[in-house]
């Protein structure tokens, strides 16, 4: 278990402001934020590679804030893998074994398990320079995991791989996490990766932790306009608070699923907006609108619909768009289910 309390780091031009985190045992925890938000910084600080200005880091109740990285019992896999170029794959994987009191037999077992799981047996005598990105990644993972670290930190593990390999690695990470019963902390800027892998997470923006919680919570109940945008709620609007279960959005009356108090933002996923050109939908929140713009995303379209003063963004399948002959300027109707509306 990792507990980070009031962690503050000042660097020239950037600072991490009193970050608080709690990673439970067996968590797959995701630090999520856009590039430059300070998430990798936080990871390096937990690992002990960055001097900390303030705050404490506890690992299983032990204060490790002032302990050098080699004695923390944590492992890290870098985005660029950081394999030792002068050592072959086998020597890379076994690099750290001698510093940990692992019995010979056990280390051999772990080595064999990892080599099998990661499918590395044919690469053991190769040098890192000759490996592909995916292979390097698996070597770097093995090198860290053979030491059985209390927590494994992963710095953007997916971003340097091409899409095909990303899927493989996601499955690998997920099964490793389950099989080893390990605790993983991953840094990522892509919420869809996080959704698949992690169970809990924190959203970081400009050096501040905006929100922590289960991934489900982050996904469904973002607490700020930034978090909402980041988890894919492309429609975020300021609202005038009204009584009970209806709000006014720029003159548009919208019915909510449940009454709210003192909320001043409304957020909505684009895929939740229903395309209803023939007016067959029932229930609240049905509006006529004009299509402003269509952006082809391959399997689906981003559709921008003007409803009075409000522009909504919807994501509709290619089939829907073609079938209903939607094009810029055409009139259509949309329906917004009450339960898909989120306020904060």
């Amino acid at each position: 278990m990792i507990e980070v309390t009031d962690l503050t780091i000042h660097l020239p031009g950037f600072s991490l402001k009193s970050a608080n985190l709690r990673v439970e045992d067996h968590d797959f925890f995701a630090l999520i934020g856009p590039t430059g938000s300070g998430k990798s910084l936080l990871l390096e600080a937990i690992m002990g590679l960055l001097p900390v200005d303030n705050g404490t880091i506890l690992l299983n109740g032990r204060d490790i804030t002032a302990i050098p990285p080699e004695e923390r019992g944590l492992g890290i896999v870098y985005q660029d893998y950081a394999l030792f170029p002068h050592l072959d794959v086998k020597a890379n994987i076994l690099f750290g074994v001698r510093y940990h009191s692992i019995p010979e037999k056990e280390s051999q077992e772990r080595f064999r398990f990892l080599v099998d799981t990661m499918n590395l047996s044919h690469l053991l005598t190769r040098h890192p320079m000759t490996l592909s990105g995916g292979e390097k990644q698996r070597v770097a993972l093995s090198r860290a995991l053979i030491l059985n670290p209390g927590v494994l930190l992963l710095d953007e593990p997916l971003s340097a791989l091409d899409p095909m390999l990303q899927d493989d690695l996601k499955n690998l990470l997920k099964s490793l996490h389950q099989e080893l019963g390990a605790t993983f902390v991953m840094v990522s800027h892509d919420f869809s990766d996080v959704l698949f892998l992690a169970n809990r997470g924190a959203i970081i923006h400009k050096g501040e932790i905006k929100q922590t919680g289960t991934i489900q919570e982050l996904f469904e109940q973002p607490g700020s306009p930034f978090a909402a945008q980041f988890v894919g709620m492309k429609n975020v609007f300021p609202i005038t608070p009204c009584n009970g279960a209806s709000v006014t959005l720029n003159g548009l009356d919208i019915q909510l699923g449940h009454p709210v108090m003192d909320h001043d933002h409304l957020a909505l996923r684009p895929e939740e907006i229903v395309c209803d050109p023939h007016g067959r939908a029932t229930g609240a929140n049905r509006f006529p609108g004009t299509i402003q713009k269509l952006v082809n995303r391959g399997f689906y379209y981003d559709v921008f619909i003007q409803v009075q003063e409000v522009e909504f963004m919807a994501q509709w399948t290619r089939r829907e768009v073609v079938k209903n002959r939607l094009e810029p300027g055409s009139e259509t109707r949309i329906a917004i289910p009450r339960n898909s509306l989120h306020t904060f």
Partner: peptide
């Protein structure tokens, strides 16, 4: 020599001398 490699070595348990 990338500092990253030295850092990686330390995260694997090697002290500064090693």
């Amino acid at each position: 020599v990338p500092i990253r490699l030295e850092k990686a070595s330390r995260t694997l348990g090697a002290g500064m001398t090693s």
